[in-house]
Nucleic acid binder design. Structure first.
Lengths: 341, 341
DNA sequence: ATGAAAGCGCTAACAT
DNA sequence: ATGTTAGCGCTTTCAT
């Protein structure tokens, strides 16, 4: 590792025979540089292969960096969001950096702080567990967008899916097929403060509400694990142990539904012959023919793109807060059908 | 967004009635601060909620940041690698940030530059497409580890899986079961320079070699798509169109194998009754009972952890270059069996 | 239109 | 052991 000195703005200035101020102006397209000077500076930049030093910029102005907080990178739905965000940001000078929050609140706080300390120009927090107050605090420091939480805030913009509607679509679908004993796989709450704000709690509460509305309050059965393959598997084994056996499972996320399918299969039961299974997120795996999982589509690409747009708007100066909500749709596939008998 | 001024080292110094040097020393555990002073400074830091400003640190010394270049975040195998890396780095003061390379070479170069410009202290590049020369150039600038490429370099450390051995395990397994008409799904080459260095080309070449060694050179059938669900699906449809029909498919990655399973199913054929399917990576989905995909385990967690360790060692000063290679193992499951008839 | 110069928050060489 | 101070590379007044 040879520590070769980087080309700096001073090198460019010297090479182009102008002041560093001039170079800075050209770089930022700022007022006060003649076309002739612009050309000379640009030429020097190209010849020397100059690239701005982000840290030095950060000391004074922008870093041209958008920070994203992700709980983890296992859920392919997050990849859709990132695709949308990247597409939106690609045409600008901004760069997206991702930090993974990890399982707990402590790791998440550390991850958010890491982004703040690195002076990102804007931060997108995806399904954060942190308290409302902490989110507001972050949003006071820098432009912020929160994706996947159902709270109002004047400090940041919000992008979400109408989880209540989406979850009701699934439960109504299953009830419409004739199911009564429908189980639900939810996620253990790791958040601080109002649990009600996060998707898993809204989906669960909606499941409960719709069941009650149809007079099925006594049939409510929730397994609280995690929205992973393992979580879905374990939760389903738990639900299958009940008697009389349920006839349908609504997993709060596709990832968990895949685990559910495995558990049902392992128990020697068939889908949808014995048990119907539905998920949420409409990931690509769900669409594959041998899986054919009924799911809810919430268009992560659009959510990500919108989050990117809102964030850039805020970076440019908007302060009024905005909410963008996606209306999900049910995508019925072969994993759900009328109950046996 | 209220732009509240951050607490700086000067604020801490004033509050603790010491010099900024003293604070800096305490922060870095540097020599020259009495226990008494340490305590006072620590107290002031806590009271004021001070956190170092990463950009300012970057101007002089370290950023305490490890940068990771990832092609994309869809492949769950990458999540294993990141888990390993995070575990290794978690106990240190370093923070991991991720940038996604995107599909093409151009995006990848931009992503790497973004990391370099942000002065990360070390960079982990996962299966980069960039030319050897460019990798060396990056490694000359900062400590670097490359994961998933089979080249020797004196500039960076390398972590890889023995893809040649892993691929041979699969092909030998299928041939051992009695298959002769075995197809392979490879990935389109987007790299610059020696294609031979990347996993997909090694797996493909190994497939070809082993087929020939068993006198099956005439049966070689490769579909070159991408290692995604879609790529596996399309590639398999292509392979299934051949006549006489092949009896086994070795997809170079689990993601592609899932698409292959869908295509086989959609064609009205059964797995493994009509067609055996094998993947590579041993992702969690592969282990699920209703998928039961034969795959190759290459322990991404260990690879990630090792990459992290090597990187930290380099940050601490090691310059001699190291290679770490994981020996993969075959994980046979129900998706492969003897051919029909 | 152009450039000189101050300063962002920190580290480290150098006094004391 | 403690503090003074000169930068790191850039942006941004403020003169000219």
């Amino acid at each position: 590792m040879v520590t070769r000195r980087r080309v700096t703005i001073a090198d460019v200035a010297r090479h182009a025979q102008v002041s560093t101020t001039a170079v800075s102006k050209v770089l930022r397209n700022a007022y006060g540089a003649s076309p002739a000077m612009r050309d000379r500076v640009r030429a020097a930049i190209d010849e020397l292969g100059y690239r701005p030093h982000a840290a030095a910029r950060a000391m004074r102005g922008r870093t041209f960096t958008i920070g994203v907080l992700l709980p983890h990178i296992r859920n392919p739905f997050f990849a859709d969001i990132l695709d949308g965000l990247s597409a939106q940001v690609a045409e600008t000078d901004y760069q997206v950096i991702i930090v993974a929050g990890g399982a707990g609140l402590k790791e998440e706080v550390r991850a958010i702080e890491a982004l703040v300390d690195r002076q990102v120009d804007g931060i997108l927090m995806i399904a954060p567990l942190t308290s409302r107050a902490d989110l507001d605090k972050v949003a006071e420091t820098m432009p912020a967008v929160v994706l996947g939480r159902h709270e109002k805030s004047t400090a940041y913009d919000a992008v979400d899916d109408d989880d209540e509607y989406g979850a009701s679509l699934v439960v109504e679908h299953l009830i419409g097929l004739g199911h009564r004993r429908i189980g639900h796989i939810s996620q253990k709450d790791a958040s601080r403060g109002r649990r009600a704000a996060l998707p898993y709690s809204i989906r669960e509460e909606t499941y409960t509400r719709v069941m009650r509305e149809h007079g099925l309050g006594d049939e409510i059965a929730v397994a609280t694990t995690s929205w992973t393959e393992e979580g879905g598997y374990i939760g389903t084994r738990e639900l299958l142990a009940r008697s009389p056996r349920l006839t349908a499972i609504f997993a709060g996320a596709d990832q968990a539904a895949f685990g559910a399918l495995a558990a049902v299969h392992e128990a020697g039961l068939s889908v949808p012959g014995d048990i119907s299974v539905a998920g949420y997120d409409n990931t690509r795996m769900a669409a594959l023919d041998h899986i054919a999982l009924t799911s809810v589509d919430q268009d992560g690409v659009v959510m990500g793109r919108t989050a990117g747009r809102l964030l850039l708007e805020r970076v440019e100066g908007r302060t009024a807060s905005v909410r963008f909500s996606v209306t999900p749709t049910l995508v019925p596939r072969r994993s759900t059908a009328a109950p046996p008998g």
